[in-house]
Amino acid sequence: MLSEQSIPLIRATLPAVGAALGEITTRFYAGMFQAHPELLRDLFNRGNQANGEQQKALAGSIASFATLLVERPDARPDAMLSRIANKHAALGVTSEQYKIVHEHLFAAIVDVLGDAVTPEVAAAWDEVYWLMAGALIAAETRLYQERRLAEGDVWRRMEITERNEETADAVSFVLRPADGSAAESFRPGQYVSVQVELPDGARQIRQYSLSSAPGRGQWRITVKRVHEPAAPDGEVSTWLHRNARVGTVLTTSAPFGDLVLPDGDGPLLLASAGIGNTPMLAMLDHLAATGSPRRVTVVHADRSPAEHAHRDEHRRLAEALPDAALHVWYEEPGDADLGTASLGQADISALELPDNLTAYLCGPLPFMRAVRAALLGRGVPAASIHYEVFGPDLWLGQA
Rank of each mutant, 00 (worst) to 15 (best):
Asn86His: 15
Lys87Gly: 11
Lys87Asn: 13
Ala89Lys: 03
Ala90Leu: 13
Gly92Pro: 05
Val93Lys: 02
Val93Glu: 07
Lys99Asp: 14
Lys99Phe: 13
Val101Asn: 06
His102Cys: 11
Glu103Met: 09
Glu103Cys: 01
Glu103Trp: 05
His104Val: 13
Leu105Tyr: 07
Asp111His: 11
Asp111Arg: 11
Leu113Glu: 01
Leu113Lys: 03
Leu113Ile: 02
Gly114Arg: 03
Gly114Glu: 03
Ala116Leu: 15
Val117Ser: 00
Pro119Asn: 09
Pro119Lys: 05
Glu120Ser: 04
Ala122Asn: 08
Ala124Lys: 01
Asp126Arg: 02
Val128Asp: 03
Val128Tyr: 02
Tyr129Phe: 05
Trp130Asp: 00
Trp130Thr: 06
Leu131Gly: 07
Leu131His: 03
Met132Val: 08
Ala133Cys: 00
Ala133Gln: 02
Ala135Ser: 15
Leu136Pro: 06
Ala139Arg: 03
Glu140Cys: 00
Thr141Met: 05
Arg142Ser: 12
Arg142Gly: 01
Leu143Thr: 05
Leu143Tyr: 09
Gln145Phe: 04
Glu151Tyr: 06
Val154Arg: 01
Arg156Gln: 14
Arg156His: 12
Met158Tyr: 03
Glu159Thr: 15
Thr161Ala: 14
Thr161Phe: 07
Thr161Glu: 15
Glu162Ala: 15
Glu162Met: 12
Arg163Ile: 03
Asn164Ala: 14
Glu165Lys: 12
Glu165Gly: 12
Glu166Asn: 01
Val171Gly: 06
Ser172Leu: 06
Phe173Asn: 04
Phe173Val: 08
Leu175Met: 05
Arg176Gly: 01
Pro177Phe: 08
Pro177Leu: 09
Ala178Trp: 08
Ala178Ser: 12
Ala178Gln: 04
Asp179Ala: 02
Gly180Ser: 05
Ser181Asp: 09
Ser181Arg: 13
Ala183Gln: 03
Ala183Val: 07
Ser185Val: 09
Gly189Gln: 04
Gln190Tyr: 02
Tyr191Gly: 07
Val192Thr: 07
Val192Met: 14
Ser193Asp: 11
Gln195Val: 14
Val196Tyr: 07
Val196Pro: 09
Glu197Phe: 10
Leu198Val: 09
Pro199Asp: 14
Pro199Val: 04
Pro199Ile: 06
Gly201Gln: 03
Gly201Pro: 10
Ala202Gln: 13
Arg203Trp: 11
Gln204Asp: 10
Gln204Ala: 11
Gln204Phe: 02
Ile205His: 02
Ile205Glu: 00
Ser211Arg: 00
Ser211Asn: 10
Ser212Phe: 08
Ser212Arg: 14
Ser212Cys: 15
Ala213Glu: 03
Ala213Val: 12
Pro214Trp: 03
Pro214Asn: 06
Pro214Lys: 08
Pro214His: 00
Gly217His: 02
Gln218Val: 12
Trp219Lys: 07
Arg220Val: 04
Thr222Gln: 06
Thr222Gly: 11
Val223Glu: 00
Val223Gln: 00
Lys224His: 12
Arg225Met: 13
Arg225Cys: 06
Val226Thr: 04
Val226Gln: 10
Val226Ser: 07
Val226Leu: 13
Glu228Thr: 13
Pro229Gln: 05
